[in-house]
Design a binder for these strands. Structure first.
Lengths: 137, 137
DNA sequence: GTCATATCGTCAGCGTAACTGATGATCAGC
DNA sequence: GCTGATCATCAGTTACGCTGACGATATGAC
């Protein structure tokens, strides 16, 4: 018997990711967000104010993509860019009050989506841990 | 403390996939292939002759992408398209002899890459199985 | 203080891939 | 034969990662 296509790690990861992305997008659509937007909000929300480049680095997103991403969020009034006073090259990104509440609601949705998504797996946390190991985190 | 970005399932899957793709591309470059090409070869190699649409379906690749993919492989003399005699709409795709040997060598490389890639995980097979469960396969 | 170097944000452009919608050729059912 | 479906192809759109350049700003050497 030949090897199944679904034995390929790349195939598995690619389509698992695609299905998760789709499920997240569908669940977050009422908030006007997708998983990518939410990830940016989450980076901005997590503690000290970050510059755009720092946000990009946390998300491992390309530096030239983060600008457009923030544009969208800023237009919707969820984040603000403020020129840093200490270093005027930096745009410090912060959540607006509306951004905070949207973020919290969306995070609950995301957790629920992920929980349901991982339901077919006997030990979801172990699976997450495996992924983290593969990234060396 | 806030939630880490690396808690997000989407983040984990995305970057694990990116690293695997990169590792595969690097390892397969001497064969003039990437992981995507190899997946096509594998679908073509596995048993009965398939039409282009059937190849696309197996790989879950869009129907309009598979043509270009096959173009490249055909130019390199690895596959052939033959008009089916029973149904002249169909292009039956088969491996050339050179395609077969290239495929076999590349498959060994892929298996090795995947083995090394999964090395940080205590039970790689269980991880694979989890992924398959998520796809419902 | 001045200069060289580096960093931040932005922009234009490239390559890849998924996707939509249309087309011509061909097949199957009636 | 006619209608509708299927196969391969083509043009066009969108999304994303990436490179290379730019002006503005900061930092360090001197």
């Amino acid at each position: 018997m030949g090897s199944m296509v679904s034995d390929r790690l790349g195939y598995l990861l690619k389509h698992v990711l695609a299905e998760l992305t789709e499920a997240q997008a569908a669940a977050l659509a009422p908030q006007g967000l997708n998983g990518r937007d939410l990830a940016v909000l989450s980076a901005v929300a997590s503690g000290e104010p970050l510059s755009q480049l720092e946000v990009a680095a946390r998300l491992r997103v390309d530096r030239t993509s983060i600008g457009d991403l923030l544009d969208g969020l800023e237009e919707r009034g969820l984040v603000e860019r403020r020129r840093s006073t200490e270093d005027r090259r930096r745009n410090v990104v912060v959540l607006t009050p509306q951004g905070e509440s949207t973020f919290e609601a969306a995070e609950r949705i995301r957790l629920d989506v992920e929980r349901r998504f991982l339901a077919p797996i006997p030990h979801p946390d172990r699976f997450r841990k495996d992924l983290r190991l593969l990234l060396g985190e």
